[in-house]
Amino acid sequence: MSPKDLLLALVVVVAWGINFVVIKVGLHGVPPMLLGALRFLLAAFPAVFFVKRPQLPWRWLFAYGATISFGQFAFLFSAMYVGMPAGLASLVLQAQAFFTLIFAMFFLHERFRAQNALGLLIAAGGLAVIALQGGHEMTAAGFALTLCAAVSWALGNIVTKKVGKVNLVGLVVWASLIPPLPFLALSYALEGPQRIAAALAGIGAMSIFAVVYLAFIATLLGYGLWSRLLSRYPASQVAPFSLLVPIVGLASAAVLLDEHLTGAQIVGAALVMFGLVVNVFGGWVVQRLVPTR
């Protein structure tokens, strides 16, 4: 990978890692369902004028928008609103990698290899430690909702695999047309018209910054650069950079939000990260250690 593209990969990692801190900041002034609606209304704006619609049937755009865009962030925003720390959210959400493997085995008939199983068991142990010894800052509801967000992301990954090669930026932008209406409907039903009106009337600079960051930096810039890297290099060379996202998420939450992990959370986080590393690099290690005939 060239130095320029390596720098772009790190830009994506930082943008996605800090994203969790920004969500927490945005939720201080805007309730979760309304924040989701504003994010995707803004992210969908380029679809009208600047980005060509990918050559896909609308059912696939709907499926992607309903899973990765709406489902993932409806659960994630709710989780962080009810007590999931930003740093731990960035880590627990990476369980999507293992849910994706499980769904791919059932829906796409892909093989579940030994390193995948080992990585899943290690990471599941880490998640169990975090869940059982979460500390006073993390709620059980927040943890469970974050896992639901990971499941939604994984289902979206299966949709992405089903549609095959497609312009990822176009897919993300046009799929952003799907979430605003269900987000607004849930906001009206759960948060109420009075709270919506009060949040919009009293929206502050930090909340506006959060919405703009989530729409343009985390969504459009992040996926735009990521798709550029995937178009230039093998997925096996690009995907490992995603392992750095929870590291940035945990570090930025500690610095910017003063979030601190308990001893048990540190152990759990280390196990989850080790499980992810085994899942990504386990096959490569086996190939190097076991000679082929």
Rank of each mutant, 00 (worst) to 15 (best):
V12Y: 04
A149L: 06
F112T: 03
G29S: 14
Q72L: 15
V14K: 07
L225I: 14
L35R: 12
L289N: 10
L256C: 04
L132C: 01
A150H: 02
I217G: 11
M33G: 10
E259C: 14
K52F: 02
G164K: 05
V22A: 03
T139K: 05
H136I: 13
S231L: 11
S252R: 01
V151E: 00
W153R: 07
A37W: 13
L42A: 13
P179D: 09
T100R: 02
L35S: 11
L244G: 10
N279T: 09
A97I: 10
V285S: 08
L276G: 00
L221H: 09
G135N: 02
L256S: 01
F73C: 08
N116M: 12
V129T: 14
G282Y: 05
G202R: 08
N19G: 08
P85D: 09
P54Q: 10
A43S: 11
R288G: 14
A210Q: 03
L145M: 11
P57V: 11
A124R: 07
P3F: 03
S231E: 13
M105Q: 11
K4E: 15
W226S: 02
V163M: 03
L27S: 06
W174T: 08
A264H: 10
L38C: 15
R111G: 14
T262H: 00
V238M: 13
F99E: 10
P180H: 04
E259K: 08
F49P: 11
W58D: 08
F183C: 00
L186D: 07
K52L: 08
G119P: 15
R53V: 07
N157E: 00
A97P: 04
A141K: 02
F98D: 06
G204H: 03
V48S: 12
F106R: 07
K162F: 11
L171I: 04
Q55L: 14
A47F: 06
